[in-house]
Amino acid sequence: MKKIFRLSIVILHLLLISKLSVAAIVDTVETTSQAMHKKIKAVIIKPNDYDKLSVMPTVYLLHGYGGNYSDWVRNAPAVQSLADEYHMLIVCPDGNISSWYLDSPVNPDWKYETYVGTELVAWVDARYKTIKNRSGRAITGLSMGGHGALYLAFKHQDTFGAAGSTSGGVDIRPFPNNWKMANILGTYAEHPENWEKNTIINMTHLLTPGKLALIIDCGTEDFFYKVNVNLHDLLLLRNIPHDFYVRPGGHNSAYWANSIKYQLLFFHDYFIAQQKLAVK
């Protein structure tokens, strides 16, 4: 009996080692922003079959206010297994604690739109086996990162073919004194044009129906819930196709850890559809 028990332990140990050996590879890398003259860290998640794949799609995953590049891996570790399941590269850049992923109109040294939307994409494409066009790129994020993902996708539709937002600050105007946004845009009282121009809900005119695949979700107890519903209604009015989900939940990591599963599935389906179109 003891021999059988020991053999069982050895088998379980070997199975565990085998499972770990094919897990996604998570690396912290140092990228460069020429626009801001500095090094910026990012987490890169490679699927376990990275070496076997010739190319793969990429999802850029943005953190929220007060966070950093490690947030998604730390707070939603399922992204690693999802990278394996969907055979995708996931890039989690550092957007500073309060960048809102904008090029600031009042601070010329603040260029996070340029960094994430242009410099980082070029950096990743030069070093990894990515699909180097919009059909193989998606971007999403939470809260500030949800705003950033839609902002970057709306303005860089030649770069990203799909975009998402979870609990996103899709209309920043109701919050003029929050999250250090006045440092980036100037105060709303003095520079209302900067706020009007750089809020997502005022940027839907940039969209052409069907060009950008969109998924947006928000919890019903979230303080951003109302502005997300308003964006959904406006997209409907403009005949912009999009997936919109609401479910119970607040502005917290438990909601985002659940949400990202649906977001990445949406992008996986988009990538598969694009591959089918390419071979026709």
Results as ranks from 00 to 15, higher is better:
147 H>Q: 11
87 H>C: 05
270 Y>L: 02
162 A>V: 12
99 S>T: 11
149 A>N: 12
121 V>L: 13
41 K>I: 01
262 Y>H: 12
206 L>A: 13
188 Y>V: 01
89 L>G: 02
86 Y>S: 00
173 R>H: 11
199 T>L: 10
65 Y>S: 06
14 L>I: 13
167 S>W: 02
196 E>W: 02
205 H>R: 02
208 T>Q: 14
244 F>Y: 14
199 T>V: 06
202 N>H: 14
196 E>S: 07
48 N>I: 03
162 A>K: 12
91 V>I: 12
142 L>V: 05
42 A>I: 09
24 A>P: 07
93 P>V: 09
16 L>D: 12
46 K>L: 15
136 G>I: 00
280 K>V: 13
93 P>Q: 13
1 M>D: 05
260 I>A: 03
180 K>I: 05
35 A>V: 00
1 M>Q: 08
27 D>P: 02
144 M>A: 06
228 N>P: 07
156 H>G: 02
214 L>M: 14
94 D>F: 08
128 Y>L: 02
135 S>F: 12
130 T>E: 00
69 Y>P: 03
39 K>N: 11
132 K>S: 09
109 D>N: 15
64 G>D: 14
6 R>N: 04
202 N>Q: 07
106 V>C: 12
163 A>P: 02
114 T>M: 04
265 L>S: 07
8 S>R: 09
11 I>E: 15
114 T>Q: 10
195 W>F: 11
105 P>H: 04
51 D>V: 00
170 V>L: 15
156 H>D: 04
192 P>C: 04
209 P>L: 02
161 G>M: 03
156 H>A: 06
80 Q>K: 14
122 A>F: 02
65 Y>E: 06
13 H>S: 10
36 M>L: 04
14 L>N: 10
28 T>Q: 07
96 N>F: 07
190 E>D: 15
223 F>R: 14
41 K>C: 01
217 D>W: 03
121 V>G: 12
221 E>Y: 13
73 V>D: 13
254 A>Y: 09
9 I>M: 08
203 M>Y: 03
195 W>P: 02
168 G>W: 08
278 A>E: 15
12 L>C: 11
92 C>T: 14
73 V>R: 03
163 A>S: 09
237 L>I: 05
40 I>R: 15
146 G>T: 05
128 Y>Q: 01
116 V>L: 13
120 L>V: 10
